[in-house]
Design a binder for these strands. Sequence first.
DNA 1: AAAAGTCTGTTCGGTAGCGCACATACAAGA
DNA 2: TCTTGTATGTGCGCTACCGAACAGACTTTT
Lengths: 241, 241
Amino acid sequence: MNKSTIPSPLQNQLLSALPSIDFERLAPHFELFSMALGEVLCESGELLNYVYFPTESIVSLLYQLEDGSSAEIAVVGNEGIVGISLFMGGETTPSRAVVQSAGYSYRLKAQILKKEFNRIGPMMHLLLRYTQALITQMTQTAVCNRHHSVEQQLCRWLLLSLDRLPDNDLRMTQELIANMLGVRREGVTEAAGKLQRAGLIEYSRGHIKVLDRPGLEKRVCECYKVVKLEFDRLLPARPQF
Amino acid sequence: MNKSTIPSPLQNQLLSALPSIDFERLAPHFELFSMALGEVLCESGELLNYVYFPTESIVSLLYQLEDGSSAEIAVVGNEGIVGISLFMGGETTPSRAVVQSAGYSYRLKAQILKKEFNRIGPMMHLLLRYTQALITQMTQTAVCNRHHSVEQQLCRWLLLSLDRLPDNDLRMTQELIANMLGVRREGVTEAAGKLQRAGLIEYSRGHIKVLDRPGLEKRVCECYKVVKLEFDRLLPARPQF
DNA sequence: AAAAGTCTGTTCGGTAGCGCACATACAAGA
DNA sequence: TCTTGTATGTGCGCTACCGAACAGACTTTT
């Protein structure tokens, strides 16, 4: 479906923010990696062999409860990296990493990343700042879960996804969105129907197109903006490819 | 009310986990700091001049929405530190740090901590591991907000507080607990009444005593255990004072 | 003792979201 | 074409929680 052009590692914003001397040192170790929708990069509590730098794919960090219900706690796209627990020192996390939007990423062997991190150079500082931005996303998710309606959360989710995609089409069923948001599928159907009737989106069988992004931004709760501003503040300006 | 004995910095578990050579280097810079209930250590977005290592006090990390409603995203006691954004590189965070249980802490000038962090020694690794544990607490809060009842969350909150206190008495009104959990005061009244009728707790006007801790642990959701296990896994065993 | 303030208990109507059941619609394969 | 599977729409009763109002109980101050 997507153009099948091979992306550059520089399409990942963390990598593109590296000084070229650091980037070049890592360049030989990048492996292009194609990720399918629904693929699990890392199970809860499992050791990661690689870290992943998405280019036009999106990875969802999910937490699954014992009773099977789940909730998304953060989303990682080309602004970030999957696998922060490797350099934070814990090696594993209780959450899972699941591909939410298929596409390429570049991956790096865990050892290579740790070695680079321990050089205490730009990569370390970038990764720590990124981690702080991710923390903001997680805390904002906590607050949003507590106080905002399904419709507001759907808007937030759509905008977060949109920010990480090259176009304005998402391939995603309402059922899957419901899993991410931790709500009923019917709740998503209702909220999405409302947005469609308002002309903001258009969807059909696992395919959502955003028609009116400013309209979504008017309906979304403050959580989206807080997260976005914090990412912009903490991470360097996004260079063009 | 509390014994007015002066605590040792070693009552903070991060500090007590430091090799003595590193601890001694910092020792001259610790300032004993007394914190009153409700005191705001750091406003949202404000630059911190100090980091705080609680000894028997508890600090709550709260996020406040534009409409005034709020939610606790994590709690910091003698196992941790307030001010992670200083070494993560972002300098500020969108959340506030508010004293939830009065008592002492030791504080350190921001510059001193950053210098220590940049030595790339035990302190850095400890702080990063602690940060990962804190992330787990935040994500679990997000999931708990989504899926669990007020009563379960109250149990979780009580147990988290209890773990960070020297005794089993908390001085805390239902109103304040409601602010932390991001629910109505009446909801807390109801849940607390239930727990009291079950003989698990006893409370009166801003004073809660836990009578049956195992009983609370039976009612709490899995979120408490997940967070606790992750803290135990990531942070070194707790030495006795 | 009286007054004022604070904390907790209770009630009541309203609503968002849940769980379930089922209907419809579209897609892909035999 | 028929079947099977998947995605979406809808209705219904239920529950947890909300918002507001108010009453009682305890504390502190005067």
